[in-house]
């Protein structure tokens, strides 16, 4: 591990040539200098941009292909036994079990994956950050309650509880909690969010515990800053780097979470295309229709791989000690 130069004189990556003007760099510039040298991370970022575009433009792609996501081509694209037909010039990824255009449905599926993954993660991060800072800052009873809650949630068989909630809340159209959580997308997002915030909260709590003892917090308190200001204007900005890294790591996990729920038939309803749901449908006929299994999985892994590549790159670039 290289020795760390004092912050003010640290030239880009610690390489200062004698006689040359030494310029100070902000943490952001340091981050960018490291990040743009990381080809894997840049590839991840490019992939994410591409996938977001595909998802956002799904309606346009559908229009260009001339096939709606729920449009049936039973006559053209299934044989006499009801088995879908494979890729051809017009249906480049073939058809799904009811003769719908798999390519168009996958584009919509990317959209569903990204929406659920990102929105659920944002909810989880919000809850996790607020509770994590509160636990670390106030300590005592507040910390005990929040930390024990985290322990309980993390030691539950998450997928089973998720299945239970999904089943219980989908039993009637009004959903759960007086209609606050309705079956469909919002139910899936709700389930994922309540089971992933503890990961964020635990990290944030740990960092807050050590940050609250620093001098700048004492300084803020001595000039009369209140608890709210100290927590969200003094401590929070120092936590941005780890929060960004963990958000990027949790998004692909949550995308797989949604796919898993949908694969088990408990995720989003059939009219909303979901990659996990497609794999579920494909699992019954994958021996006769390899494309139906192959392409949705391929795009699913592309999405998660892209976020994991970016997450690894962000972690390395934001952690000054990292030389992995």
């Amino acid at each position: 591990m290289a020795t760390v130069a004092p912050e003010t004189t640290q030239a880009p990556l610690g390489l200062a040539v004698a006689g040359e003007q030494v310029t100070g760099r902000t943490p952001r510039q340091l981050f960018w200098a490291r990040f743009k040298k990381d080809r894997a991370a840049l590839l991840g970022l490019a992939l994410i941009v591409l996938l977001v575009l595909l998802g956002a433009l799904a309606p346009l792609i559908s229009k260009l292909a001339g096939h709606g996501p729920n449009e049936l081509f039973t006559r053209e694209m299934t044989d006499e036994f009801g088995i879908p037909l494979g890729p051809n010039g017009e249906f480049i990824f073939g058809a799904d079990k009811s003769g719908r255009d798999l390519f168009v449905r996958i584009m919509y599926g990317i959209r569903t994956s990204l929406i659920v993954g990102v929105v659920a993660t944002l909810f989880a991060v919000f809850i996790g950050v607020v509770l994590g800072i509160a636990a670390g800052y106030f300590r005592g009873v507040v910390d005990t309650i929040i930390s024990r809650t985290i322990d309980v949630i993390l030691s539950m068989p998450i997928l089973l509880f998720a299945i239970g909630i999904a089943a219980a809340c989908s039993a009637t159209a009004t959903g759960c909690l007086n209609g606050l959580v309705k079956p469909g997308l919002s139910l899936v997002i709700f389930i994922i969010a309540i089971f992933t915030w503890p990961y964020i909260a635990r990290i944030v709590r740990g960092s807050t515990l050590s940050l609250r003892e620093k001098e700048f917090i004492e300084a803020a308190r001595s000039v009369g800053a209140g608890n709210g200001r100290i927590m969200f204007r003094e401590i929070l900005p120092n936590l941005v780097a780890p929060i960004i890294v963990y958000t990027t790591v949790i998004i692909p996990n949550n995308i797989l979470f949604e796919a898993a729920l949908s694969f088990l038939g408990l995720g989003v309803p059939d009219r909303i295309p979901s990659l996990g749901r497609m794999l579920d449908d494909a699992s019954a006929i994958f021996e006769d229709a390899w494309w139906f299994m192959f392409f949705p999985g391929l795009f699913l892994i592309l999405i998660t791989l892209a976020f994991n590549l970016l997450g690894d790159g962000l972690r390395d670039a934001l952690d000054p000690r990292s030389d992995r």
Partner: peptide, 10 residues
């Protein structure tokens, strides 16, 4: 990154 169910089907 790989979904278990996809690996299993493959």
């Amino acid at each position: 990154s790989a979904p278990v169910f996809w690996l299993g089907l493959l």
